[in-house]
């Protein structure tokens, strides 16, 4: 995962990243994006890469609680900020309510957009705890899903909101 495909000659720089409550020292060249560093240096592969230009949202993470396309954010620029990835929201033994709702409503098919979708939904519900259907649509519009037609994802987010399941970002 390098941004510069011409064969980078630049030197690595060292910095710390705070991810899901843990600190990771990183040595990487400046051109590395946050997505690549999360996936290959830190080993958190739940965040996905689906496009070249901020269009699909599969790479969505929270930066100080706000959704960011990690594909177009420099990893080095994230130092000193709190990064939350899908791995920080819940696990198989204790699913986050959004994760549970998504499964119960059939909002998961191939699953490739799912981590980014959950991150965006989480950020949306933190901004607006009782969104309308249209507000959910706009709020998730940066996350493309090709499987579901969005209906069941939007249902799940609305259901999650009505259950008051928004929890503070860990």
């Amino acid at each position: 995962m390098t941004i510069d495909e011409q064969g980078s000659e630049s030197e690595s720089i060292g910095y710390d990243l705070h991810v899901n409550g843990q600190t990771y020292p990183v040595e990487a060249t400046l051109d590395r994006n946050l997505l690549g560093v999360l996936r290959t240096e830190i080993g958190l592969t739940g965040t996905k890469e689906g496009c070249d230009d901020c269009e699909c949202g599969a790479c969505m993470v929270l930066l100080d609680g706000q959704p960011v396309n990690s594909c177009s954010y420099l990893a080095a620029q994230a130092q000193g900020r709190q990064i939350t990835t899908i791995e920080g929201l819940g696990n198989a033994d204790q699913l986050h309510p959004l994760q549970e709702c998504l499964l119960a409503h059939g909002g998961v098919q191939c699953g490739f957009c799912t981590p980014g979708m959950i991150i965006s939904a989480h950020a949306l519900l933190e901004r607006n705890s009782s969104p309308s259907r249209d507000e959910v649509g706009i709020g998730l519009s940066g996350n493309l899903c090709r499987c579901t037609g969005y209906a069941k994802i939007i249902d799940a987010v609305l259901d999650s909101a009505s259950n008051g399941s928004v929890e503070p970002t860990p």
Binding site: C110, G111, T114
Partner: peptide
């Protein structure tokens, strides 16, 4: 399902 929603 759990695999896909948790990113594992």
């Amino acid at each position: 399902g759990p695999d896909k929603v948790t990113g594992t």
